[in-house]
């Protein structure tokens, strides 16, 4: 049984009509292919129409769509099954919310890393809803260093509602684990691509989000906080989540406009969940193209460009005349 979001109601109706028509055809043997064709055409139009003008909050909903493909589905499809999952941070345990391993595309080895959400209630708990603990970030870093050692490019797939805010996460240094990844990823000698495929919430997302190219799928979001939590903090209630989603400028379009990401990956008509296979192939192409370009650049230069890109982010106001900063010796104030 497919799941439809509230604004997808017209899509649901059309899908049901198509199914009905097909059933009638089967039972009565009357040719209704003309009707179904017309309905299918209508469906495409309606999907395009609805998805062309989603509000920021609706995009957040799409990013969390229960049928939206998750990290492992991408990796398996992209590598055509040539994926060897690797486990453990070598310190505490294996975090099920963070997955990774070597995979092959066109006979070339890549390191894939990403947060993994569960596909049903049981798996959601097993995957801790895609919220990694410190050992998840340390596992990710271990795999990145492994890739670096053997000169393999890194692809991270970001999809998390945040780093896990639990007691043991605090004991084991959630903050330190993320911070360590940020500083280490800045200096990785191999090319790194980061793709937000669903939710990109805050430090939990950024913890595997430092790359030469940071891309977002059309219907994903990326910000410092989820719209619900932003609403709770600023308005003291969840009711302003739509407003918060708008204010945060968290969509791929806005993020690109603000130069906080490097590009957007188009989704199939009706979103990634409407045609996962097409989505996987698009992502695969993007990875191959970008890595090829990045590998042509000298690694020192790549690191410098990566650092400069992040250092250019931010908007500050300064007086026109800059105070001279020659004197190293402290002056009396």
């Amino acid at each position: 049984m497919a799941t439809y979001l509230d604004f997808e109601e017209p899509i649901k109706e059309l899908v049901e009509q198509i199914e009905q028509a097909k059933q009638i055809e089967e039972k009565s043997k009357v040719d209704v292919s003309k009707t179904t064709k017309a309905l299918e055409k209508k469906l495409k139009e309606v999907q395009t129409e609805i998805y062309s003008k989603l509000t920021p909050w609706q995009r957040v909903q799409v990013s969390r769509h229960p049928e939206r493909p998750y990290t492992l589905s991408y990796i398996k499809a992209i590598t055509n099954g040539n994926f060897l999952e690797l486990h453990g941070d070598r310190t505490v345990k294996d975090d099920k919310a963070m997955v990774g391993g070597f995979g092959e595309i066109d006979g070339k080895t890549y390191m894939f890393i990403g947060q993994q959400k569960g596909i049903n209630t049981k798996m959601r708990q097993y995957r801790n809803f895609g919220m990694a603990n410190p050992e998840g970030y340390r596992k990710a870093l271990r795999l990145m260093h492994l890739a670096e050692k053997f000169g393999k490019p890194i692809v991270t797939l970001i999809d998390t509602p945040g780093a896990f805010p639990g007691l043991e996460a605090e004991e084991r240094g959630q903050g330190e684990a993320i911070a360590r990844n940020l500083i280490e990823m800045m200096q990785l000698t191999v090319p790194v691509i980061c793709i937000v495929i669903g939710e990109g919430a805050s430090g939990g997302a950024l913890g595997i989000g430092i790359g030469d190219k940071v891309l977002m799928l059309e219907n994903s979001w990326y910000s410092v906080i989820s719209p619900e939590n932003c609403s709770t903090i600023l308005w003291r209630t969840w009711d302003f989540k739509e407003k918060a989603a708008e204010a945060l400028k968290l969509t791929a379009d806005d993020m690109l406009k603000n130069k906080l990401i490097d590009g957007i990956i188009k989704e199939p008509i009706g979103g990634a969940h409407a045609n996962p296979e097409e989505m996987f192939q698009t992502v695969r192409k993007e990875i191959v193209t970008h890595i090829k370009k990045l590998e042509a650049v000298d690694s020192e230069k790549r690191i410098e460009e990566r650092i400069n890109k992040f250092c250019d982010m931010g908007v500050v106001v300064e007086p026109k005349v800059k105070a001279p900063r020659k004197s190293v010796a402290a002056k009396a104030k």
């Binding site: 940020l182 410092v224 906080i225 968290l250």
Partner: peptide
């Protein structure tokens, strides 16, 4: 928002 995040 995300500008703040990227300061990290």
């Amino acid at each position: 928002a995300a500008f703040s995040l990227m300061q990290m």
